[in-house]
């Protein structure tokens, strides 16, 4: 069995009295490509944000290589540098060019030399097809291009897992393809990925495991064939039928 990177035990999160995640158990192994699907408000994004500690879970534990990162005295910044994240709204740094966006984290967090960081950043910008735009600023490029840069920025940190929080939801339909393409190539290269998505085709064709969330719990999970081809639960069938139309 592949090495286990993340193990989530009994994770719960509430905003005030609103319980968004209820007792989630979940694990991520090296090389996994997991799609998390479900209706809006089912807690998918919150789960992802909890994994990256952007939200503090109310209870439960997140084990990163067997070590709980929710305990006191864990270095959240250090942990986050191993767990990359791509946001729905890109969140590129507006005060920097495309290249600087991909370099700054390597230089300041990983303490790489500037030349090395630039060469490394170029490698990934090349892979996402954004190498010609290194001098552009985020406000000067399109949404799909921003998201590809965001992926390069995350990859340049050499993370062990990459979390995608609805990476194509804020994009015009004609830009969705270019981003999904990049993600598919990443998945094929063996990158461990956790993708919250509404793109059912991506979930079915690219991911190795599909997790269906409903009402703050993991309702059903399994291989794409199992979940899409032969859903066990009525809720899953309901949800999927809405997509098939």
């Amino acid at each position: 069995m592949d090495e286990r990177i993340l193990q989530i035990n009994h994770l719960s999160k509430s905003f005030g009295s609103n319980l968004v995640l209820k007792d989630i158990d979940f694990s991520v192994n090296q090389g996994d490509v997991i799609s998390i699907i479900g209706a809006s408000g089912s807690g998918k994004s919150t789960l992802l944000r909890c994994i990256n500690l952007l939200e503090t879970p109310s209870s439960g534990e997140i084990l990163y290589h067997g070590k709980n990162v929710l305990g006191r005295g864990t270095n959240a910044a250090e942990y986050r540098s191993h767990v990359g994240m791509v946001f729905q709204s890109f969140n590129l740094f507006n005060n920097m060019t495309v290249l600087e966006n991909c370099v700054v984290g390597q230089v300041r967090v990983l303490k790489r030399g500037k030349a090395e960081a630039q060469a490394h950043a170029m490698e990934y910008l090349e892979k996402v097809g954004m190498a010609p735009y290194v001098n552009a600023r985020p406000r000067q490029i399109s949404g799909g291009q921003k998201q590809r840069v965001a992926i390069a920025r995350a990859m340049a940190m050499d993370p062990e897992v990459l979390l995608f929080d609805e990476p194509t939801s804020a994009l015009d339909p004609e830009m969705v393809g270019e981003v999904l393409n990049v993600m598919q190539r990443l998945a094929e290269s063996g990158m461990t990925m956790l993708v919250v998505t509404h793109e059912m085709a991506f979930a079915r064709d690219v991911s190795k495991r599909v997790v269906y969330m409903n009402g703050g719990v993991i309702c059903e999970q399994g291989s794409p064939d199992e979940v899409f081809g032969n859903p066990q639960k009525a809720e899953t069938r309901d949800f999927l039928s809405r997509f098939r139309g």
Binding site: M85, F87, F93, V109, A154, M157
Partner: peptide
């Protein structure tokens, strides 16, 4: 935009690094 802080945190920046590299400029 709070997203700028999240973007910086997500690549492992500390509060000081986030401030000096991203937010304060």
């Amino acid at each position: 935009d709070p997203g700028q802080t999240e973007g910086a945190k997500a690549i492992g920046m500390t509060h000081v690094q986030t401030m000096t590299s991203v937010i304060l400029p």
